[in-house]
Design a protein around this nucleic acid. Sequence first.
DNA 1: TTGAAAGCGATACCAT
DNA 2: ATGGTATCGCTTTCAA
Lengths: 370, 370
Amino acid sequence: MAQVTIQQVAKAAGVSPSTVSNFLNGRTNRMVPATRERIVKTIAELNYRPNRAARQLRTGRTQRIGLIVPSVANPFWGAFAREVEVAALKVGCSVLLCNSEREPERERRYVEELWDDGVRGIVLCTSLPSLDHFADLIERGLHLVAFDRPAQPDDPPSVVSISIDNNLGGFLATTHLLELGHRRIAFVAGSLRSLNRAGRYSGFRTAIEAAGLDIDDMPTWQDELGSAPSGDVEAAEVGRRAAHSLFSGETPAPTAIVANNDMTALGFCRGLRDLGLHVGTDVSVIGFDDIVLADLYDPPLTTVRQPIAQLATLAVAEAISTGVEGPAGHSVLLRPQLILRESTAPPQPARILTGSTGESIVQGTAHGTD
Amino acid sequence: MAQVTIQQVAKAAGVSPSTVSNFLNGRTNRMVPATRERIVKTIAELNYRPNRAARQLRTGRTQRIGLIVPSVANPFWGAFAREVEVAALKVGCSVLLCNSEREPERERRYVEELWDDGVRGIVLCTSLPSLDHFADLIERGLHLVAFDRPAQPDDPPSVVSISIDNNLGGFLATTHLLELGHRRIAFVAGSLRSLNRAGRYSGFRTAIEAAGLDIDDMPTWQDELGSAPSGDVEAAEVGRRAAHSLFSGETPAPTAIVANNDMTALGFCRGLRDLGLHVGTDVSVIGFDDIVLADLYDPPLTTVRQPIAQLATLAVAEAISTGVEGPAGHSVLLRPQLILRESTAPPQPARILTGSTGESIVQGTAHGTD
DNA sequence: TTGAAAGCGATACCAT
DNA sequence: ATGGTATCGCTTTCAA
């Protein structure tokens, strides 16, 4: 129960705490090998482990970064969190993980708690339009890395923003659909709180207009604001509702959709299934993120992949970057990649359902786009 | 940059640090309202936040628990991690999350690091057969909660084990399949490292034998040990390989399978798709966990649900339980629940593939089991 | 009701 | 090459 302290080690080894401390901090050149030996031996015997709180109090340093995600229950954030941990491990850091559930108050509370814990580097995956609230902490030395959120004009100057080029992602996805021959494409987004939506929609719009089509002819579906303060798992439910709504017959149905993320896309596919419609064959679906399940789904989902590992590495690097007065605030946009799978295919000219097994349908249509 | 200390607050408020400390710790009854007022005001003005390291060093206490999971990239663990955080928040704790990737060395390192950080309650989701390695830390006061791992005879006495009743889960799943009429059912497990496998298989066996069938007639598939030191995402790949192998024609193929978890089940479904086979219609698939995607899948996956929220609440409670000499080590087994969906259906009597669209195939068979 | 002072465990400067 | 000692920010007796 009682903790072994550096004093005890020192006494047992017949040296002073200073020397043990020197040893602990790699300054082994300052002592004769014999002393070193004794210290090593004593530490092992006593099973001594330095108290981090004491060390941190003294040095002011922590080998830790904070990661605030909407919810690790969402496979995308789970995968990202894991990559962040991998990246942090490489630079000798551990990660304190927090789920904000996209609630601004929780985000703020977590940032403050992390600060209290001595954490000075935080990767914040936020939807908050304003980061003003953290201005004073940032001024006091907090390294805030905003992830998956476009830099905003009035962000505190030293904030670093990291994300993919959402605009490009939306453009690639939409262009792919247009090239397949689709002319009526819907954009389905989840929570309005998600700031990345704007970029993706903008890319969508650019592609639509570049094809000489009218953006106003494209149905869009978006979650009503009133819904639960949703985490991201609910994104699937959003997609499902969107499918039901878009195919209710009130307006001409789209032949393809671009979803704001894979969970929404998968939910949309589920909704299509509820209606007896087939993904790929009846309506093409494209998502964002490329979560593991995108490839597992039936049919495998075409999607815009985020290079998670690189994003994570970058984010960690920025979070731990020593605050030498450098370029400070800036934003990094990584290139997303379109992953072609089987949920997208040319529109059915006259909606002729080929009579055959599923396999041959796949062969005949979806595979052709791969 | 410079941190505000309790001394500064004290001076600015014209009181002693002791009084501020008393205020901070809720002992407001020990001061006149006027004093209290001044302290409140000063703290707000200076934006003072107590240094946790100092506090922890002094008191020895931390409001934090550790959670070690195989990988948050696996949707099940992601969901669990989130529930743990919710439960911890309720009791005023924060959670330090670690991914072990199922590597024993990482698990051990993390436990030690957490200990160094002053964490005295750890929820360990492990596959390690032996917990001996932590014996000395446990003796020194570590509260170790083993999750999803059956208690082993030689576990250190104070270890608490929490999981579902895997035996029952395996039994429920298999019985369901038997009742549908299946007579050749395969058991598909991922990593041999997973200790929960044994219980589930045992339940499987019990059900098979209770039906008067011979367990040796049931194909089983299990990942070769040699494979990568896999995290859990690879579980899907395992399932996919299993499908390819089981339906290679070398042995009579099963008409249904029980997978050790949903990711494996989903991977299996994907493998079936590779082969042009249909889930539910051609072969029934049942998983374990009930991750969000089980319901989203096409067809929705029948599975054995783990009551994650309750499990998490229990785990957290045990992790923070004050070490009053109580009953100490014990194990808790929660009841899993069979969730019927559409991936299980009666076997096809003569394997007649109805020539029609995919939709009507679904209508004719899979839907009927719901 | 308030304050002085000791000390938690480590570090690092300054002596020797 | 080694050791003495002040110090990090806070809590907690104990005295006043």
